[in-house]
Design a protein around this nucleic acid. Structure first.
Lengths: 196, 196
DNA sequence: GTCTATATGATGATAGAC
DNA sequence: GTCTATCATCATATAGAC
């Protein structure tokens, strides 16, 4: 087979750029990283990046589009989709907690929301889809969770899902400004309320 | 009297700059507005701003410092400080809802958290103080509120305060990305849980 | 005391070399 | 197909005019 799915090839330049740009985006914001930053890290000239991603808009849109693909893939993995609701919720929390270990990166939404109006339109559209699909997924998890008695909350699943996700996004931002402690405190509070 | 507190004087240039910069900061982010934007709006050359605020760091720090002064002033107003806890909480919600009417501005924390590492150190320090004092104030409100039976929640007042504030900050960001609806949904959920 | 002309550097992007 | 030399523009900031 020509492209074995089990073997991890060294990423090509195009992917390396995307990985690097994604990291900078989540650590510094979209308007605070440049082609120079990327080029220096990769040992090429800034203009080389333009070959792979003609404009910064293209690069930004590619980052969000990939995160959306990843979300769909993750959500549909048997190891996630087949879990009971409580474990699905914990899997979501694990994703956010994982950001802490990567230089306290904020989540995609938290990285782009404040600068939203300065983003290219395709990037805005992808981010809206990302947030909508994530919220819908969690609402479904919460609905089943309450029906089976595994999760407890008042109000509609959709409202609770929106609340939980804004809280998680905000919690990573607080971790950035202070330290990991308030993130753990807030997540602890979320779990306390949902699982009590 | 030379400076009557009841009469609203037309703001001087220094204050006009600060007002304008604050608006741009909350609508576009710190790294997405320039002295040119300010100068064009004020009908002067960009360099004129440098007379009033020598560097952009100075300007940014002045914005956060003023918000911190405002927070302390607001918190200590008799019309706020003397309210019962439930009404104090509603007063806080009113502040956030008020942002929606101003072009869906995010809150100060939500505007700066993602770009935090690119901010000048004094600005970072002021923002940490701002967030800490606001959280401490709310924790106190929540503590008294539960003691008097006006507010209901599990966990410590400090944890609940941190959770509520990250949620509100995130809710304004969602309003920016989508529309006012999810903000209202999330705030409704918060009230439902605390006042039930 | 207030603002303008100007400098210096970074930015995103183009045209063309290898 | 991949990258580099170069550009036009915009950024913040200084020195000095009024």
């Amino acid at each position: 087979m020509s492209t074995p799915s089990a073997i991890k090839l060294p990423p090509d330049t195009r992917t390396r750029i995307l990985d690097l740009a994604e990291g900078l985006l989540l650590e510094r914001g979209f308007n605070a990283f440049s082609y120079q930053h990327l080029a220096k890290e990769l040992g090429v000239k800034p203009a080389a990046i333009h070959y792979h991603y003609p404009s910064k808009d293209d690069l930004g849109t590619a980052i969000v589009a990939r995160q959306l693909r990843r979300l769909r893939k993750w959500r549909d993995l048997p190891r996630v989709a087949d879990l009971p609701p409580k474990e699905q919720f914990d899997a979501l929390l694990a994703v956010y907690e994982n950001h802490l270990g990567h230089d306290r990166r904020v989540c995609l939404f938290g990285a782009l929301a404040a600068d939203f109006r300065t983003l290219p339109a395709p990037m805005q559209a992808e981010l809206r889809t990302f947030n909508r699909e994530l919220t819908e997924w969690l609402a479904q998890v919460l609905a089943v969770g309450r029906a089976t008695g595994a999760l407890r909350y008042v109000g509609s699943p959709a409202a609770k899902a929106a609340q939980v996700l804004t809280t998680l996004s905000g919690a990573l931002q607080v971790a950035r400004v202070h330290d990991e402690t308030p993130f753990q405190v807030v997540v602890g509070q979320l779990r306390l309320e949902l699982l009590s």
